[in-house]
Amino acid sequence: MNGGIYLDFEKPVIELEKKIEELKKLSGVEDEIERLQQQAERLKRKIFSNLTRWQRVQLARHPKRPYALDIINLITEDFIELHGDRRFGDDPAIVAGLAKIDKHSIAIVAQQKGRDTKEKIKRNFGMPHPEGYRKALRIMKMAEKFNIPVLSIVDTPGAYPGVGAEERGQFEAIAYNLFECTLLKVPIVVVILGEGGSGGALAIAHGDKILMLENAIYSVISPEGCASILWRDASKNKDAAEALKLTAQDLLKFEVIDEIIPEPIGGAHTDYQKTAENIKSVVMKNFRELTALPVDELIQKRIEKYRKMGVYKE
């Protein structure tokens, strides 16, 4: 599964697993294999129950982590991708469309990273342009028109910092999505799958329920950006990750997110199927609860949710 790419703290487990694979080629060592498998399992549990914030950042950015389309393909029965913002172009960093999940109609907007170099470039490393956010909004407005709930999947380092993005109003595209999604008459369930990079993530993360994968991150600034501002040294990203408190566990405690979606031990990249099942079951539970609400109540609750956010003294 790991295909040779692993993080430093995954190494002891990977080495044990390699040894097990080797032993499997021999006969008469079943007991030894069994013993090593148990050892690997214990080791994994130990490592993954004690992750630092920086280790979670690394898992959220793991090159083998499932991306939006991996999850969409595993949880939907029929996904039809729809393209373009009808104003400027089609942004491959955002995937949008209509689908069925367990016979229910849903609309999906999602940030998509690329796996290999060619796709990474095509997807612009998951960093959307304004036309991507405008496409997402177009699909969400269509969902509202046909009374179809919206699933939004977030996985981006941030909105693209480029000349064209600024010329076409990156700030306006983000702000307008927040403005429009506030009164959208259908439920919006947000899943932070990997990286939730600041305003670029928030542009499609303004909804009724914010769910976060166990090892996903969501932050106002990247650990690198924070470190270079604070200590003029981007290599202090580990300290910055600690300071920013950007894990799902932190954000649940802050009541900024609503629920954590568990990952398989070893991280989402070790088992796409299990990860997708977990996402699907939590998402569908939330859709069931939200679609039961009258529209006015749904919107009122959404507004109240954001009204509560902030810590100050008066």
Binding site: A175, H206, L244, K245, D250, V256, Y306, R307, M309, G310
Partner: peptide, 11 residues
Amino acid sequence: EGIFSLMQLSK
């Protein structure tokens, strides 16, 4: 103020 600052955009 980390994520609380980001949430002010939404608010």
